[in-house]
Design a binder for these strands. Structure first.
Lengths: 166, 166
DNA sequence: TATTGTTATACTCTATAACTATA
DNA sequence: TATAGTTATAGAGTATAACAATA
């Protein structure tokens, strides 16, 4: 109601970019979350170089290194994804000598994932390189806001999952 | 180095889920940004219902309602996307009577986007419904942290874009 | 030469449902 | 019956490069 639609329409060229009104969009966290994710993803891949794994694969490999014998379903839960989203990554890592998989003696449905020495090395190398990425992120966030920001993200995720929508 | 790899490997079943170690992954903002985005997206779509537009379309429609005669390129810049990512949405909105497009008299390459009465109504209806979504987000974030959280997200985006990687 | 909008293509990320083999 | 992992498929998001029309 603040704007006169008919009057605005009289002009015959777009409005100047600097004067664009975003209105309520400034409150929409979702859009900023998406863009922030893309920016963080790009920084990670650029800093780690082409020979490194992508962020999602790094997450999986790290979970396997830190938790020998972890199962695919556990990896999915720990990284907040469905188990089917992980199949291809695990096979690729197995084919490339980063992990091995062994059926559990107690439940032959589950395959225990274990990092090979090459996998452990890769993870260590990537983790070392990723420190520059984390530093860049920390500086962009502001060192004093960093811990609270991460905690807020985690809270947002868990609170929103509980909230049942009418 | 804190763990004995050989010893861990002796067991024949996966470790209990509650004891899984995430290590440095707790510092990786990127993963939480992705999950938070997905959670926010899902909440938006559930609260607004099936007859509403998706979040990305709502962003575009809102920009057009608030800024009559905005061009496709301007919409792209304002929503941090390439202009090619918007073509399909604009055609859909035109076909469905939410907007009209008119070549500018001063530069016939640019098409000025203007919301129709139906488009204005749709945007108003969605914006009204979206308040519940924003409230849910605000509560999940914590009302006292909300403004700072959004500002931090914006800072993160703009700082990381400037940072040139060696 | 440069820009607007379009198209074709491709690349992230992800999930669901049905299947198998096991439990 | 139910679960672990696989597969096929689909859907969300996005971008790049080349093109015609126009500046």
């Amino acid at each position: 109601m603040a704007r006169s639609f008919a009057k605005e329409q009289e002009a015959d060229c777009p409005p100047p970019f600097e004067t664009l009104d975003h209105g309520i969009l400034h409150e929409f966290v979702g859009m900023y979350l998406r863009v922030a994710y893309e920016v963080a993803y790009e920084d990670f891949t650029k800093r780690l170089g082409a020979e490194a794994l992508r962020p999602g694969y790094f997450t999986i490999l790290t979970l396997i290194v830190l938790n020998p014998r972890i199962s695919q379903t556990q990896i999915g839960m720990a990284s907040e994804r469905d188990k089917s989203s992980i199949t291809i990554a695990l096979r690729w890592m197995e084919d490339n000598g980063l992990i091995t998989r062994h059926p559990s003696a107690q439940d032959r449905r589950t395959h225990m994932c274990v990092a090979t020495p090459a996998g452990i090395e890769m993870q260590a190398r990537m983790q070392a390189k990723s420190l520059a990425h984390l530093t860049a992120l920390g500086n962009a966030i502001g060192p004093e806001r960093r811990a609270d920001f991460i905690q807020t993200l985690k809270d947002l995720i868990h609170e929103m999952r509980q909230a049942d929508i009418p």
